[in-house]
Nucleic acid binder design. Sequence first.
RNA 1: GGCCCGGUGGUCAAGCGGUUAAGACUCCGCCCUUUCACGGCGGCAACACGGGUUCGAGUCCCGUCCGGGUCACCA
Length: 490
Amino acid sequence: MDFFTQQESRIPTGKVRTRFAPSPTGYMHVGNLRTALYTWLIARHANGTFLLRIEDTDQERLVEGATDVIYNTLRQCGLDHDEGPDKPGPVGPYIQSERRSLYGKYAELLIEKGGAYRCFCTKERLDELHAKNPTAKYDGRCRHLSQQEIDEKLAAGVPYVVRQKIPTEGETTFSDVIFGDITVPNADLDDNILLKSDGLPTYNFANVVDDHLMGITHVVRGSEYLSSAPKYNLLYEAFGWDVPTYIHCSPVMRDAQHKMSKRHGDPSFEDLIAEGYLTEAVINYIALLGWSPGGEREIFSLDELRQIFDFHDISKSPAVFDKAKLTWMNAEYIKAMAPEAFYELALPYLQKAVSTPGIDLRYLAALLQPRCEVLTDLAEKVDFLDVLPEYDPAMYVHKKMKTTPENSLQALQACVPALEAVTDWNESNIHDALFAVVEQLGVKNGVVLWPVRVAVSGKQSTPGGAVELCLLLGKEETLRRLNKGISLLS
RNA sequence: GGCCCGGUGGUCAAGCGGUUAAGACUCCGCCCUUUCACGGCGGCAACACGGGUUCGAGUCCCGUCCGGGUCACCA
């Protein structure tokens, strides 16, 4: 068995196989993660195989620790892979730099089959050509070198690249699930470099070889590769291989004309997590960015997505990432959590924000849960617990509550003895004491409760009403703050 | 500039020749509530434009405009 038939014999058949093939940049783009999600969903929906391949053929862009970010993100999101650098499978290795010798052999094979040729042009000559006309194709100088010329250069050790030999006539049609059939004249295509002079493949070539050798049935990638897709077909054709199903996805945008980009300060996945978004919410949100199952439901767990996902419903047009909607969805996830789970999630944030001993954080968390959109906005909501902020006495005036500085003062003055008399400081006793004051004064509830809330928190918006806040602060601190309010109003 | 792709409210997004053109987010109003929030109810707001085809077009065709992608020994 020769080398090539040996390689071919390893290719699994019969099942859906997809791959996520990121190049290690050190962070996970939202768009990238969405591609990973869709790719995973396609495989899992069909009970197929999902594999991870690292595309690190650009030696100048290697980033230390970058592959860890990929592993960690996928794991965190629940996008498990069956094969990958860390999970040996039948078609490894799964890191392109370790597949180096493979590409060289396939490049040779392609030359033999007439689909490629060696190009000895120097980088300098190419640069010159490019400077003269930046959008011109390669001029084809090495395309028709005689065998003798080639042998001489080879013998002399002249460095070379391998270029794809595009037919000069005719046209090529390729099919994409999302975009349909696209036909282009071959004359518009360039003889692109397949194998660089360092022996490593370019993205175009590595992709075709790897996807074939790894038995990939559905290729999911960004629409920026759409225009190079016809060249892929030509490559598959030249090799005599079956063309996989293409699924090109439009980009995730920051606004109508810009892609999301780290450079412009747009958040990566890990940034969003650091901002207090839940992994599940982010996954749910990006699944719906450019894909819709139809119907009115919007909240889906990963497993539910897996069941209903159909890649035919991926949209052609780009989608703008809307943080406001993500925030809403995040709040939905928070509200749906078991109280205990939310408590544990919120605890680190609360511990950092509240240092006063004796505050019942479990109780606090329960008050906060329906009011929290993003974990990081917890701190600002509870900052009044440690220290009563300076506040404007005008805050006591609330037109709907019908409060004035005068009746507020009166209310606070009545509340102090009433609360002082409470011996067992619990929710129901505090409630009763406060409502006794309401009755005693013969006013609306708000006329007493609003001033208490302000006095005790210094804020208009708080994680609970007067009763809850008093309970949280404890009797002593409550009375201290009430008296402070009284002196402020006097 | 050449080639390719796209274009339904501010955003996401149903729609697949006949609908009062769904729904969600945002925003606004009302109700509930001790405030805010939650929840409930209601509202504002869209088929880029022009020609065809058709009894009938957001849906099909052509053109225009606008936007994006791509034209590297980057992926």
